[in-house]
């Protein structure tokens, strides 16, 4: 094994074990993308092959068919307890990106997860975010407390010293645990290759395009690419200068603007 990947893995596994030992009711989020699939794999490794807590998929019903196929296949092969966070009420009322993307995300993702957390009383969630994804992520900690509205007080975060990850006694509703925070996009792909992890076919180029990050069908845009194998993807990332989430950047600005105009009373 590449030495540095081994070091990344060691730190991640130690973190996952810390989370399991410190929190009563832990779960891991899985989006079927490469990062969260690698994280599931790390969870498997941390506990000798069997993930001892539930795996949550936030099911918006708008994800790609390939993602649902991948989910069911892996869940069966790896044998974990899969939970779906799905906002059935909002879907009954025809919630879709057509009603506004931010609105749709809030209802089908945030609220769906909030409800599940409340119902199952989860006090900690493992998330596969990385510091190099975009600016604000760089400010994340390995242990990141959230209040009941999922708010993250990035300006007043608890200090995190050495590898002493501490569960606070108050002031949080649930803890977000980020075991691959220190990995890069390239690290993840190298790891996927080394560990021979299953990869969703959407990541590979078809007709000159491939998906670099996976989300809901109406709101995810493929990037131009000819990379059709993991090796080619690794080569592409090494030479590429566009951020992973470029396809989503304008959506984010638009969502921000909409929120801002609302707060100013325009809408």
């Amino acid at each position: 094994m590449e030495n540095y990947l081994q070091e990344l893995e060691k730190k991640s596994i130690a973190l996952i074990r810390e989370a399991k030992a410190q929190f009563k009711n832990l779960a891991v989020l899985w989006s079927m993308g490469k990062d969260s699939t690698a994280t599931l794999w790390l969870c498997k490794k941390a506990f000798f092959g069997k993930i001892p807590f539930p795996v949550i998929h936030i099911d918006t019903s708008y994800q790609f068919p390939e993602m649902y196929q991948f989910r069911d296949k892996i869940a069966k092969e790896w044998g974990f307890n899969l939970l779906l966070a799905k906002n059935e009420d909002a879907l009954k009322n025809d919630m879709s990106p057509k009603k506004g993307r931010l609105e749709c995300c809030t209802k089908l993702k945030t609220e769906a997860l909030k409800n599940l957390i409340k119902e199952r009383k989860f006090d900690a969630l493992i998330l596969a975010i990385r510091r190099d994804e975009h600016g604000i992520r760089a400010k994340e900690r390995y242990y990141s407390p959230r209040d009941e509205n999922f708010r993250w007080d990035y300006k007043d975060q608890p200090a995190e010293l050495w590898d002493l990850y501490v569960k606070p006694s108050e002031d949080f509703s649930h803890m977000r645990v980020h075991p691959i925070l220190h990995w890069t996009e390239l690290d993840v792909w190298q790891y996927v290759k080394q560990e021979n992890l299953p990869v969703n076919s959407l990541y590979f180029a078809k007709n000159g395009k491939r998906y670099r990050s996976l989300g809901c069908m109406p709101c995810t845009v493929p990037v131009p690419s000819t990379a059709s194998t993991i090796d080619e993807i690794i080569q592409e990332i090494k030479t590429s200068k566009t951020p992973e989430r470029a396809g989503r950047a304008q959506d984010k600005e638009k969502a921000y603007m909409m929120q801002k105009l609302r707060s100013l009373g325009y809408m």
């Binding site: 990106p97 057509k98 009603k99 506004g100 638009k254 603007m257 909409m258 105009l261 325009y266 809408m267």
Partner: peptide, 11 residues
């Protein structure tokens, strides 16, 4: 104007 602005955000 505000109605159209809202419409824009709703595509």
């Amino acid at each position: 104007e505000r109605k159209l602005l809202k419409g824009y955000f709703e595509d």
